[in-house]
Amino acid sequence: MSAFPPPPAESSGPPPPPRDLPQGPSQDGPQDGPGAPARRRGRTAPLIACAALLGTVAGTAVGYTVQADRAPTPLPPLSQAELSYPDKPLPKGKEPEPLTAGQDRRVRTDGDLRELLVKRPRGAREPDLALDDGWLSPSAYASKFEHPDHMFTTLVQGQGLRRVASVSWEEGRYREVRIDLVQFREDRERSAAGFVAEQQAYMSGADHAGNGGKPLKGSGNGRYYVYDEPRRKPGYLPMYQVRAIAQRGDVAMDIHVYDSEPISERYISSLAERQLERL
């Protein structure tokens, strides 16, 4: 069997008449009906589109012309009438005096951060596990949280933790106090303020009975927290807790106090205010 179709059979009759070509409209006018020639279509839509485009261009040109002839509308005045610094360098001898170490907060925090910690009260005891040099390693600080591994990664890699200065003491029968000054590098963002905001959100969450805390006087964003209900564990004394956290520049202040008896608001707020003043 051949793979190709057979050639058409040759016809001995006359050739077929030529195929009809399209015809134009009749001179007698349009005709309808099955025998009428087909109407030519397709020109009306392009003509309408061209007319719409020309109308849009013309309208835009007229709009620009009208706007160009109008007087410019003055802008409202700025809230700050003039800049706080001169537009030209001051002559020699009239430059402002540089900030002193007492005025420049960055000068103080770039120095020995341990010197900005409050001193142990007179009569307070040094804890058995007190730091020898006053520095707390990033891993040791992260170990104070419920999820140390995650906290270490967040502090060091995410927020750029620089160093932690710490002091602690014991007073009374069972009271323990720890103050940490957590400093960040802040190369790209305000990590200290972000860290404080995250901790405050955590403290006000469901795990801490939604305690929103109270504003810390003179801090701007600082708050202190007092919990009336202690943590209880079989075989141990009840543990009451208060906390204060605030931010100054690139340093976050974090204060924890624990006791087997309730801790007053006055105690934690006064301690936090004294530490904040040193920053």
Results as ranks from 00 to 15, higher is better:
Pro8Cys: 09
Ala9Val: 08
Ser11Arg: 11
Pro14Trp: 15
Pro14Gly: 13
Pro16Leu: 14
Pro16Ala: 12
Pro16Lys: 14
Pro18Thr: 12
Leu21Asp: 15
Pro22Ile: 12
Pro25Asp: 11
Asp28Ile: 07
Pro34Asn: 07
Gly35Arg: 06
Pro37Gln: 12
Pro37Thr: 11
Arg40Thr: 02
Arg41Leu: 06
Ala49Lys: 04
Gly55Ile: 09
Thr56Pro: 07
Val57Tyr: 00
Gly63Met: 12
Tyr64Arg: 08
Tyr64Gly: 14
Val66Arg: 05
Val66Lys: 00
Val66Gln: 10
Ala71Leu: 03
Thr73Trp: 07
Thr73Leu: 08
Pro76Asp: 15
Gln80Ile: 10
Gln80Val: 09
Ala81Phe: 10
Glu82Leu: 03
Asp87Met: 03
Lys92Leu: 15
Lys92Asn: 11
Pro96Phe: 10
Glu97Ala: 15
Pro98Gln: 09
Thr100Tyr: 00
Asp104Asn: 10
Arg105Cys: 02
Arg105Pro: 11
Arg108Cys: 01
Thr109Trp: 02
Thr109Met: 03
Leu113Gln: 04
Arg114Cys: 11
Arg114Ala: 08
Glu115Thr: 12
Leu116Ser: 11
Leu117Ala: 09
Leu117Lys: 01
Val118Tyr: 00
Arg120Leu: 04
Ala124Asn: 02
Ala124Asp: 00
Ala124Leu: 00
Ala124His: 01
Glu126Arg: 04
Glu126Pro: 00
Pro127Lys: 08
Asp128Glu: 13
Leu129Ile: 11
Ala130Gly: 04
Gly134Cys: 06
Pro138Ser: 03
Ser139Ile: 10
Ala140Leu: 09
Tyr141Thr: 05
Ala142Val: 14
Ala142Asp: 11
Ser143Cys: 12
Ser143Ile: 09
Lys144His: 08
Lys144Thr: 11
His147Leu: 15
Pro148Arg: 08
Asp149Val: 13
Asp149Ile: 10
Thr153Arg: 13
Gln159Val: 01
Leu161Glu: 02
Arg162Ser: 14
Glu171Gln: 15
Gly172Phe: 11
Arg173Lys: 04
Arg173Gly: 00
Arg173Leu: 10
Arg175Met: 13
Arg178Glu: 14
Leu181Asp: 10
Arg185Tyr: 06
Glu186Phe: 06
Glu186Asp: 12
Asp187Val: 05
Arg188Leu: 10
Glu189Pro: 00
Glu189Met: 03
Phe195Glu: 05
Phe195Gly: 04
Val196Tyr: 02
Glu198Cys: 02
Gln199Thr: 00
Ser204Arg: 05
Ser204Gly: 14
Gly205Gln: 15
Asp207Trp: 07
His208Tyr: 15
Asn211Gly: 03
Gly212Cys: 09
Pro215Cys: 14
Pro215Lys: 09
Lys217Asn: 10
Gly220Val: 05
Tyr225Leu: 02
Asp228Ser: 13
Pro230Asp: 05
Leu237Tyr: 01
Pro238Val: 12
Ala246Thr: 09
Ala246His: 07
Gln247Val: 09
Arg248Gly: 04
Arg248His: 06
Ala252Arg: 00
Met253Arg: 06
His256Leu: 11
Tyr258Met: 08
Asp259Tyr: 05
Ser260Val: 03
Glu265Gln: 07
Tyr267Gln: 14
Tyr267Asn: 03
Ser270Met: 07
Ser270Asp: 11
Ala272Gln: 01
Glu273Phe: 03
Arg274Gly: 11
Leu276Gln: 02
Glu277Ala: 13
